[in-house]
Design a protein around this nucleic acid. Structure first.
Length: 745
DNA sequence: TCCGGTTCCGTTTTT
DNA sequence: CGGAACCGGA
């Protein structure tokens, strides 16, 4: 019979073989969760269940893809017919099929957070509200909170608690803004991330036939990372599984780290209440980590009050103690970690890809990057600003979006005058007013611009020329393949030219990114597993694509990412950095017990990513917002039983005068030397204007690198200002000696 | 309208 | 600090 089942321990095997009825698998870190999930799906298929009757919801696209591959190895190509993906991507797929039933076009746009915020900002301005009071980010988070709890705009305004909170904070109109926002999204044929969930649920509520269809289709439902589902996701799953009750959720309450996104640990803690005949399996043996790591992590998580009872253990060896690095500055932390990676790699004969540096916030990556670069250690950063969020990429994508859905208001506003074609803010504002007055979309106003009042003849001409351009693209969406059309749009829209002509370093980068985007589209059109090669399909693919999905596992590189990004991954050696009070745990989470517990779970996740060794590090001071911030070591270090810690080998931090400690120069009180000097690496050159202000002996107190290519030097005393323009190709640095200042990248 | 220059403000984590 | 918003001259 099926040999793969023999690889499982009894508890795992029971979890795999129990396919009928509600099941909950509580899977501790490193307990073989993914294996159980994949085998369970393979087992279902072995039992003769058609793959298209199986729905598996994962947390990231990458997890889905990986699982699909693994299952394919077990059962063959049939695995392709499984419905597997993230909540957002699966529901987007369903919504594309059913959109017309809830008044959306099939080709609806997906607004990302930036689009949503920009729309909200626009509404706030149009309503004549003060955007100091109504900060778009805040309004967005209130709306998102409401959506994730399935509260409609009307319910929001009637909800006593919510309106009380808003009134108390001086923003009574948030409910109204929510309503306007919803309306505008609908008119634009757009859904935001939250809509993908609530519209699905609405669809199910309003159309019994549709629910019935999907309930019959998905006879077996599985949910991975269940501890991180939010209320609306919970509702949808419950609805989908209502008919057959063959629902299996897998999760670990100790790894619930997405409360800020509306995830509720209660979903998993109270799961039994929903299904009285629930069968629970607990996977408690850790196969991943050493005893030291497992026990240290368990100690820590035990300090939390809210959790399911379980006892994680391992048969693995004791392993090394957890080492702590103490650094004076953030830059030194980077150096210590980079040096350690170099050493451990040699000593243990490991590869770069066996190392991960995990941190709480994205901005911490900088110091590590620099230190690693200096040692020539290859690395990759996951997270931060994703490729598809870059300005130039979004510019071009906006043209694509508009060609596909001309009502897409955010795309419209983004590119109507980009590259500049003489359609100014005044004209656009007038068009927005007209659209509102006549209840039309912006696109309709643009189309009928000849009849619009209050727009001068120049505006009329430029707008209608632009409309013709977009209409041409619109027709081509259906006839050309994605790559040909994308190239065509990049050329005729003028975007290509715009960035090609920008010869600054930034501009060159941007141009390269555009070429990379076109390359990705070319790749897409050459894929064999997809039949429809139109641009619309490509856009659907990437709408929910994140940076984490891009990660190249095969590459031999050190991985840098936030702990959130590390969910579901493992590495032989893990560095957990920035263990300072106020940073990790974050100061914003120190106000409530629940928040602190979530931070602790985050720390738990970080530790349990490691197979062999864990290093912790902290910096006594770090640069943050242009200032030095001092902190105490994190309480989490204290919470580890000292017997697991190696605290003695802490390297003393040294600060040498006049030397670089990473990016910053330590001030040295000698001024009898040139102040501004040289360039770094072969091809850099710079021209100083106003040279008189940059003479020997001048005491420079502050240097800033402005946007673009201007370096500003602010003198002391007479408050002199100097301007240095430089033009360089390749990597460059300007070194300014004997001053408290920054060394540029 | 465009562009360079200045001011001002945020600061967790992400589908 | 770094970036977005803003401002004012051409």
């Amino acid at each position: 019979m099926s040999t793969y089942l023999d690889e499982l321990n009894p508890e795992q095997r029971a979890a795999v073989e129990t396919i009928e009825g509600p099941v909950m698998i509580v899977a501790g870190a490193g307990s073989g969760k993914t294996r159980v999930l994949t085998y369970r799906i393979a087992y279902l298929m072995d039992q003769g269940i058609d793959p298209w009757h199986i729905l598996a919801l994962t947390f990231t696209n990458k997890a889905a893809k990986e699982m699909q591959n693994r299952i394919e190895k077990l059962v063959g190509a049939e695995a392709k017919n499984l419905w597997m993906g993230t909540f957002h991507s699966i529901f987007a797929k369903i919504l594309r099929i059913e959109a017309h039933k809830i008044g959306y076009p099939q080709n609806f746009t997906i607004y990302d957070t930036e689009d949503s915020k920009s729309l909200i900002k626009g509404i706030i301005k149009e309503e004549g509200l003060n955007d100091e009071v109504y900060k778009p980010a805040h309004v967005y988070s209130r709306i998102s909170l409401a959506k994730n709890n399935f509260i409609s705009p009307r319910e929001y305004e009637q909800n006593a608690e919510l309106s009380e909170t808003d009134r108390a904070s001086g923003k009574p109109k948030i409910g109204y803004l929510y309503e306007q926002y919803t309306k505008r999204c609908r008119n634009a044929g757009a859904m935001d991330f939250d809509d993908l969930l609530i519209k699905t649920y609405e669809l199910f509520l309003q159309h019994p036939d549709v629910v019935n269809k999907y309930q019959q289709k998905f006879r077996f439902v599985m949910v991975d990372e269940y501890q991180d589902t939010n209320h609306i996701q919970y509702l949808i799953i419950k609805k989908l599984a209502a008919a057959h009750q063959n629902i299996c959720v897998v999760g670990d309450d100790a790894q619930s780290i997405y409360a800020f996104r509306g995830a509720s640990i209660k979903n998993i803690l109270n799961y039994e209440k929903d299904y009285p005949d629930l069968k629970v399996f607990k996977l408690e043996q850790n196969y991943r980590s050493t005893k030291t790591i497992v026990e240290a992590a368990s100690d820590i998580i035990k300090k939390n009050k809210y959790q399911l009872e379980k006892n994680i253990w391992t048969d693995n060896g004791i392993g090394d103690k957890i080492k702590v690095f103490k650094a004076l500055t953030d830059n030194e932390e980077g150096v210590l970690v980079a040096n350690s990676i170099f050493e451990v790699k040699m000593k243990d004969h490991l590869n770069e890809k066996d190392f991960a540096i995990l941190y709480r916030t994205n901005y911490q990556s900088r110091a590590f990057e620099e230190a690693l670069r200096r040692l020539n250690i290859p690395y990759q950063i996951i997270g931060g600003v994703s490729f598809y969020q870059r300005k130039e990429v979004k510019d071009l994508l906006a043209y694509f979006r508009l060609a596909i859905n001309t009502n897409d208001e955010e795309a419209f506003k983004r590119v109507i005058n980009f590259p500049a074609r003489g359609i100014g803010d005044t004209t656009v504002s007038k068009m927005i007013v007209l659209a509102k007055e006549n209840e039309m979309s912006l696109w309709d106003v643009a189309k009928n611009i000849q009849h619009a009042s209050g727009i001068d003849s120049r505006g009329r001409r430029t707008v209608s020329e632009w409309v013709v351009l977009i209409q041409r693209f619109q027709v081509q969406v259906g006839s050309m393949n994605a790559f040909d059309l994308a190239t065509e749009i990049a050329k005729t829209s003028g975007i290509n030219k715009h960035y090609f002509e920008d010869k600054t370093i930034e501009g060159i980068n941007r141009y390269d990114n555009l070429q990379e985007l076109l390359g990705a589209i070319k790749e897409f059109t050459e894929r064999t597993d997809i039949e429809d090669k139109h641009l619309g399909v490509f856009m659907q693919e990437i709408a929910l694509f994140t940076d984490a999905d891009k990660q190249q596992i095969g590459d031999d590189k050190v991985t840098l990412m936030t702990i959130h990004g590390a969910k579901g991954l493992e590495f032989p050696v893990v560095y957990v950095a920035g263990l300072e009070e106020n940073l990790f745990p974050s100061q914003m989470s120190l106000t409530s017990r629940e928040d602190l517990e979530e931070e602790r779970r985050l720390f738990y996740v970080a530790l349990t990513r490691a197979r062999k060794r864990v290093f912790l590090s902290f910096a006594q001071s770090r640069f943050r917002w242009g200032q030095v911030v001092y902190s105490e070591p994190s309480r989490f270090i204290e919470e580890i039983n000292p017997k697991f810690l190696d605290y003695n080998q802490v390297q003393p931090a040294r600060e040498r005068e006049g030397a670089f400690v990473g990016k910053y120069v330590v001030p040295k009180p000698v001024v009898n030397k040139p102040i501004v000097k040289a360039s770094y690496q072969a091809e850099a050159a710079f021209v100083a204007e106003d040279v008189s202000t940059l003479q020997e002996g001048m005491e420079v107190v502050h240097v800033r690198f402005g946007q673009g290519k201007v370096l500003m030097v602010e003198g002391k005393g007479e408050d002199k200002k100097a301007k240095i323009l430089f033009d360089a190709i390749g990597e460059k640095q300007i070194l300014i000696k004997y001053a408290k200042m920054r060394i540029l990248n």
